[in-house]
Amino acid sequence: MVSFLDFEKPIAELEAKVKELRAMPGAAGASIDDELARLEGKTDLLLRQTYARLTPWQKTLVARHQNRPRFGDYVAQLVTDFVPLSGDRAFADDQAILGGMGRLKGRPVMIIGHEKGNDTASRIRHNFGMAKPEGYRKAMRLMALADRFQLPVITLIDTPGAYPGVDAEARGQSEAIARSTETCLRLGVPLVAVIVGEGGSGGAVALAAGNRVMMLEHAVYSVISPEGCASILWQTAEKAQDAAAALKLTAQDLIKLGVIDQVIPEPMGGAQRDPKAAIASVGYAVSSALDELAGQGAAALRAGRRQKFLDIGRLPLTA
């Protein structure tokens, strides 16, 4: 059962009514069927209208939705022969970033991503997708391994940001993020990055400096959370809605700004309503991108990736 966001209340009410009607004893009869069809049509229309017009703040809420598919779900549905790989060989195995090898539509790949968890216990275990230096160092290790054996790298980004804590600072959070970004940029194999939920600042960039950067339709990608931005620039977190709009953090804005290459459509009503369909469209987009990049050598991949980032912000923008 998918949980509803505040702005989805009218949809939730309609759906509840449909459910109620269906459950009514002796719910056959032409009049009830008509009523059901009418209500379902109305629900569908409302859902369509709501999701076609999501505000940047609403998108932020959808991107953080607790029922959106997680790294584990993507791997389970898309990757065969999966071999999870663990640890940074220096300190620990961070559960906020997971990774391993497997096959995507038959092709051996390295897949790395943030894992937020899907219930209270697992969310705590995965630290809500907020990685520490050892998480980024694990990612670097897996990327280097992929590079050595010519496996393309896929990253799935979904994090509120890198963990801001004493231990993370003590072990060099900023250095780990910087090196991870550098590792992405140096790879001699294709790197396809997908922001599937929240792309939270440096903690996201560290895995997202790819040859192709894609976003799910209702994902967000930002330098700071709307709440954080509002509390600094407006002096109150209550202006988060204004900040979300000002930051231009939606996939639709970012493709106009030339920051991402592709928007991957989500099922009607968001990935949380139909995770299987959302995962399938990510799988399709990623493997098409890998097909396109397959012919390029290491030098061309590296040069192309660098130029892509150098070009950002230089070209005339339309947004």
Binding site: A178, T181, E182, C184, L185, S201, G202, V205, A209, Y221, S222, V223, A246, L247, K248, L249, D253, L254, L257, V259, R306, F309, L310, I312, G313
Partner: peptide, 14 residues
Amino acid sequence: EGILSLMQMPRTTV
């Protein structure tokens, strides 16, 4: 500068 400021992280790394 929103996301464009974030993009300076990979750009300066280049």
